[in-house]
Amino acid sequence: MAPRTRRTEALSRDRIVEAAVELLDTSGEAGLTFRTLTERLATGAGAIYWHVANKGELLEAATDGVIAAALTVEPAGAPRDGIRAVALGLYDAIEHHPWLATQLTSQLSRSPWGSVTPRIFEAIGRRVHALGVPEGHRFTTTSALVTYILGAAGQNAANATSAVPHASRAEFLDAVSKAWEELDPDDYPFTRAVAAEVRGHDDREQFLAGVDLVLAGITAVHLPARPGRAG
């Protein structure tokens, strides 16, 4: 029993998860193995298995740790501002950790009873409730926000990793804009019309604009203006 006590003191679960996140950030999911983890932590596999049963559990813990940190936002004055703050926290986390989007998709769909899904739903849903969305509509409203936030942030992360090698984001967007401008005007009139807007747009600002559009829809549907109040 004594050796187990020493192992627990010498190597905590938190340190293992921290090392796993570091490996995921530098090498991706394929680079996270118990062998690479033991090398990074300068320990034996047994000491890690004492805290984490398998790679799946390790990925879940790493995802939960990053999301928990991302959702540590200061309370905002208005629920709408709080939702925007939570959205940006998730956006930044997904942008800084390229592996996170895939893990979130997997965990939200395959194990919504795990810690990650309730953590995200609580952070956004509590503010949806504070907005005044009526009972019976809060789950759908929160789901719409979560779907947009994670989907748009994940797409942005995918854009960053799949862009043309050695090209900056601005150069990539310029290439997209030029290609759209050359589309057949009969088949793609709208896409050609907005091609210039692609060039030089800010991904973060576009993301927040989308959040505001969803919030505007929530306000229009569930929070009609009171009599005598404009808008």
Rank of each mutant, 00 (worst) to 15 (best):
V17M: 02
W50V: 15
I67N: 00
A144D: 05
I16T: 06
R7Y: 12
A93N: 02
A158D: 11
E95A: 15
V133R: 04
T161F: 11
L108S: 06
A170E: 02
A179G: 08
K55M: 07
T219E: 10
R6P: 06
I120M: 01
L41R: 05
P79N: 00
A167C: 13
L183I: 03
E182Q: 15
A158F: 14
L88W: 04
D203H: 15
A76T: 01
G56T: 11
E29Q: 14
L208S: 05
A70S: 01
A10L: 14
A53E: 13
T26V: 14
P185C: 08
E171G: 08
V211T: 00
L58F: 09
G151M: 08
T36W: 06
D64F: 13
A144I: 10
I218A: 07
A160L: 14
A69C: 05
R7S: 14
G151C: 09
Y49C: 08
T26Q: 14
A101H: 05
A85I: 06
A68Q: 12
E60W: 08
G65M: 02
R80M: 03
V133Y: 01
E74G: 11
A230F: 10
P134I: 04
A53G: 13
A53F: 12
L145A: 08
R15T: 11
T38R: 11
A85Y: 04
E171A: 13
A193R: 06
D186Y: 07
R40W: 09
G136M: 03
S27G: 09
R169Y: 08
I67A: 01
V164S: 10
A230T: 06
H201G: 15
Q107F: 13
A160K: 12
A230L: 11
Q107G: 08
G231C: 11
D64L: 15
E182I: 13
L90D: 03
A157K: 02
A163R: 15
P3L: 07
P75Y: 02
S143V: 14
R7P: 07
A53R: 14
M1N: 08
I16S: 04
V164Q: 08
T26F: 15
E182A: 15
V146S: 00
T161D: 02
G56D: 04
H222T: 08
R169P: 08
L71Q: 01
L41T: 02
A144V: 13
R204D: 09
N156W: 15
L11Y: 05
D64P: 06
G82Y: 10
G44Y: 10
N54P: 03
G125V: 03
V211L: 00
T117M: 05
A87W: 03
L150D: 08
G231M: 05
E60N: 13
D203I: 12
L24V: 12
E95D: 13
R199I: 06
V128E: 01
L183Y: 02
S115H: 03
V21D: 00
A158N: 13
